[in-house]
Amino acid sequence: MSFGEIDVGEVYKNDPSLKPDDVKSIADWAEKQPHLPKMDELQVAIFLQSCYYSNELAKVTIDNYFTVKTLCADIFGNRDPRDSAVQTSVNTVLVSLLPKLTPEGNTVIFFKLLDTNPDPYNFPAAIRCFDMLTLLHLHKNGPCKGLVIVIDMKGVVFGHLLKLSVVVMKKLMYYLQDAMPIRLKGIEFFNIVPFMDKILALMKPFMKKELLDTLYLHVDQESLCKRIPKDILPQEYGGSCESIHILHEKYKGLINDNADFFKYQETQVVDESRRPGRPKNMGDVFGMEGTFKKLEVD
């Protein structure tokens, strides 16, 4: 494709545990699923690697991924970089895959508010931008050994909490744990806020024990750096990475310059009318949403 995806041969070369025959087997299976969109070899390889080379788990994850993307168009749809919600989110929240890996070889994705005014903050749009950037990175650079999410909460106020939604949080946690083609190794919050307990109350009911065990809360950066080396972080945090300004410019460039990739992603949806057996709906995947709406923070 025109956005410059990595050659799948390089992916195999970088990861000898990833077997072309296994990828072909899953690709053949996907071709026979009438409800699934067309996938290329690289995309299948990314899913198989994210599932620790389990063919059966990869098949389930592929189906979950395309089903969630289709059912949750409010979060994952409209990936046009020119969309006002995307542009506003890009200028409100920094999302950056930092260039240096952790000592364990994991990739760090760094979040920070650029605009601390809660008015322009849009939770679903922020998720969309995170997903756009991460999937672009996987297709340009190949699978990550593991992904660690690091969130600087400086500037987060109660008004941001009011923008969160139990329903959207449930969908996000399902996607992260059961559908997104990544090995999520942990979530690290630092500069945590006094109302962190309320944010956790929205998250924890939908987190599996494996992810809960890798959730870390840090009062300040000093605590964070006991787990994430300072050198990995942006200049403003004493690290050797570029400044927040440069990271933001790169982030904007990646979003704005890859419209073809994001447009292609929008075409990859499930045709539920062709799914073998009974079509899936929102209730099948996420349960009855009505039981969660009463838990919304207001």
Rank of each mutant, 00 (worst) to 15 (best):
Gly4Lys: 05
Ile6Leu: 13
Val8Leu: 07
Val8His: 05
Val11Asp: 01
Leu18Gly: 01
Trp29Ala: 01
Asp40Ser: 04
Gln43His: 12
Phe47Asn: 05
Asn55Lys: 12
Asn55Ile: 14
Glu56Val: 08
Val60Lys: 12
Val60Asn: 02
Val60Ser: 05
Thr61Phe: 09
Thr61Arg: 15
Asn64Gln: 04
Asn64Thr: 08
Phe66Val: 03
Thr70Leu: 03
Leu71Tyr: 09
Cys72Gln: 04
Ile75His: 00
Asn78Glu: 15
Arg79Ile: 04
Asp80Gly: 00
Asp80Tyr: 01
Asp80Phe: 04
Pro81Val: 10
Asp83Cys: 04
Asp83Thr: 02
Ala85Ile: 08
Val86Pro: 02
Thr88Glu: 13
Thr88Lys: 14
Asn91His: 11
Leu94Glu: 09
Val95Ser: 07
Leu97Gln: 11
Pro99Gly: 03
Glu104Ser: 12
Gly105Trp: 05
Gly105Phe: 08
Asn106Trp: 05
Phe110Met: 00
Lys112His: 13
Asp115Phe: 00
Pro120Val: 01
Ala126Ile: 10
Ala126Val: 14
Arg128Thr: 03
Phe130Asn: 12
Asp131Trp: 09
Asp131Val: 13
Leu133Lys: 05
Leu135His: 14
Leu136Gly: 10
His137Gln: 05
His137Ile: 00
His137Ser: 06
Gly142Trp: 02
Pro143Ile: 01
Pro143Lys: 00
Leu147Tyr: 04
Leu147Met: 11
Ile149Glu: 05
Lys154Arg: 14
Lys154Leu: 08
Gly155Ala: 00
Gly155Thr: 00
Gly159Gln: 03
Leu161Phe: 12
Leu164Asp: 10
Val167Ala: 13
Val168Ser: 12
Met169Val: 04
Lys171Arg: 15
Leu176Gln: 06
Gln177Tyr: 07
Met180Ala: 08
Ile182Asn: 01
Ile182Trp: 03
Lys185Asp: 13
Phe189Leu: 11
Val193Cys: 11
Val193Leu: 10
Lys204Val: 15
Lys209Gln: 14
Glu210Gly: 03
Glu210Cys: 05
Leu211Thr: 02
Asp213Leu: 13
Tyr216Ser: 13
His218Asn: 10
Glu222Thr: 12
Glu222Gln: 14
Ser223Leu: 06
Leu224Phe: 10
Cys225Gln: 15
Lys226Met: 10
Lys226Asp: 12
Arg227Asp: 09
Pro229His: 03
Pro234Lys: 00
Tyr237Ile: 02
Cys241Lys: 02
Cys241His: 03
Glu242Val: 13
Glu242Asp: 15
Ser243Gly: 06
Ile246Arg: 13
Ile246Leu: 13
Ile246Gln: 14
Leu247Tyr: 04
Ile255Lys: 04
Asn256Cys: 11
Asp257Val: 02
Tyr264Cys: 07
Gln265Tyr: 10
Gln268Arg: 12
Val270Ile: 12
Asp271Leu: 06
Ser273Asp: 15
Ser273Gln: 14
Arg274Tyr: 06
Arg275Lys: 14
Gly277Phe: 09
Pro279Leu: 05
Lys280Phe: 14
Lys280Gly: 04
Lys280Tyr: 15
Lys280Leu: 15
Met282Cys: 09
Gly283Cys: 15
Asp284Tyr: 07
Val285Arg: 02
Val285Glu: 01
Glu289Ala: 15
Thr291His: 09
Lys293Ile: 12
Leu295His: 15
Val297Phe: 14
Val297Ala: 11
